[in-house]
């Protein structure tokens, strides 16, 4: 029974993350920088990292990027989002696991956003064979402060609600 619930929860969270990714791709941002996004799916990823741990949130994240590839159908942006997602999750895991005494979820998610941007710009510079793309990075760091703050702030509420639900179904 536990296993079924486990699967269902992961599937639900993955579905939410995919939904947010697609939604994020539809709404345009006024800032024209490559990969400047709100990072909405990161709310789900961060919440699942806190509640379910590293392995499960990594699964959600990787499955999400593949599903978004199928839905949106852009293999190039898949490469960026894949490396960005994996690198930012590893960073958030390390910060959350070892430095959670110092940083709240807001700090963790800012770290994640910065890692995501760095990985994406690095991937873009490798694919396009052009180092000048790194000149986008300072602007993107500033943007990621706002998006990271927003994501960390909202994840607190998601985690609170998820914990209530999980307590009710006696899952943990």
């Amino acid at each position: 029974m536990n296993k079924t619930r486990n699967f269902t929860f992961l599937a639900l969270l993955t579905a939410f993350a995919v939904l947010l990714s697609v939604f994020e791709n539809i709404i345009p941002l006024p800032i024209a920088a490559p990969g400047a996004k709100l990072g909405l799916p990161n709310m789900i990823i961060l919440s699942s990292l806190v509640i379910f741990g590293f392995k499960k949130s990594l699964t959600i994240n990787i499955v999400r990027t593949f599903l978004v590839l199928i839905i949106i159908g852009n293999p190039i942006s898949f490469i960026y989002s894949f490396f960005g997602a994996v690198f930012s999750l590893i960073t958030m895991y390390i910060v959350h696991r070892y430095f959670s005494n110092y940083f709240s979820l807001i700090g963790v998610s800012i770290f994640g956003a910065i890692a995501h941007n760095t990985a994406q710009v690095a991937t873009a510079s490798i694919i396009l064979e052009n180092m000048n793309i790194f000149s986008y990075l300072p602007v993107m760091y500033l943007i990621s402060l706002f998006t990271g703050f927003f994501v960390g702030f909202s994840s607190n509420f998601i985690i609170e609600q998820l914990n209530k639900v999980l307590y009710k179904v006696d899952w943990r």
Binding site: Y102, F103, S104, I106, G107, I110, I114, L142, L145
Partner: peptide
């Protein structure tokens, strides 16, 4: 430390 991080990134 969050605030320090934000100032540092800025």
């Amino acid at each position: 430390f969050d605030k320090i991080l934000i100032v540092f990134v800025v």
